[in-house]
Design a protein around this nucleic acid. Structure first.
Lengths: 135, 135
DNA sequence: CTACTTGCAAACTATTTGCGTTACG
DNA sequence: CGTAACGCAAATAGTTTGCAAGTAG
């Protein structure tokens, strides 16, 4: 069924994973590209995307789909939720314990098989609160 | 500050709103376009998008951003959550009461001002359960 | 040596926008 | 009659993909 894909060691892919592990600001493909372009001058955007997709498939990173703008990536693999600042669009982890009872409630209400959920919080991050917004 | 925008009565915009109110399957712009094209043969995609954006701005409909694919629209305006079928990508309402305490918990954990949240449930809808998936 | 990885450019999807015309109020 | 709404086509943002050349194992 699920065909087993084989991946080689790839300098760039490893470096992307490292970069994501070294920071907690959930960068997007473009930031990763600009950052690694310094180390790999011939790096291409297409390859950044290709590798991000592979890392997601390998379950070594998470893709965070913001409402708008580009996707963000996250190397923290234990379950957590996200906060998105409506002013600067920064993304922060929210270490709230998994709210598994919500799945059961949703299943009862809908008759669906519920295997998971996602929670996103919105508001203003500490920085943007003091700046007086600016959106 | 927030400039007051004036909108005329528009046949097409009214019809889009009606259509959304008459169904609970959260259609996307393309389905709305194909559906209303029958009534308005000269209807254009650009105008469907323009009107959907106006309706959202008027707070008469909600935009639902799926992870992938096109945005869905919803004319049910009281607070609720959504279930997304991972097989057929249908969207269902989940009439779970607002989980406001989560906002406070997230605020404490992050130090952010949390003004709202969004919950999305994933799994298989009743139809796709019986079909034996098929994704 | 096989086939995964990469750079490059072109393609693609969903959505927005500029412009000239139509029509609501 | 002024200006919002419209049709149309072109533009945009983000991401994916085909192809030929490079490289890990």
């Amino acid at each position: 069924m699920t065909k087993k894909e084989i991946y080689r060691n790839s300098r760039q892919r490893n470096r992307i994973l490292n970069l994501l592990r070294s920071r907690d600001d959930h960068p997007d493909a473009d930031l990763i590209y600009r950052e690694l372009k310094k180390e790999f001058p011939r790096l291409s955007m297409g390859n950044v995307y290709r590798n991000l997709n592979i890392l997601v498939k390998q379950r070594r990173i998470h893709r965070i789909k913001l409402g708008s703008g580009s996707d963000r990536y996250d190397a923290v693999m234990d379950h957590h939720y996200h906060f998105i600042c409506e002013s600067c669009h920064s993304v922060m982890d929210v270490e709230l314990p998994p709210q598994d009872r919500l799945n059961e409630q949703a299943a009862q209400l809908t008759g669906c098989t519920v295997t998971g959920h996602q929670i996103r919080f919105f508001g203003l991050c500490p920085r943007c609160q003091s700046h007086g917004d600016g959106s």
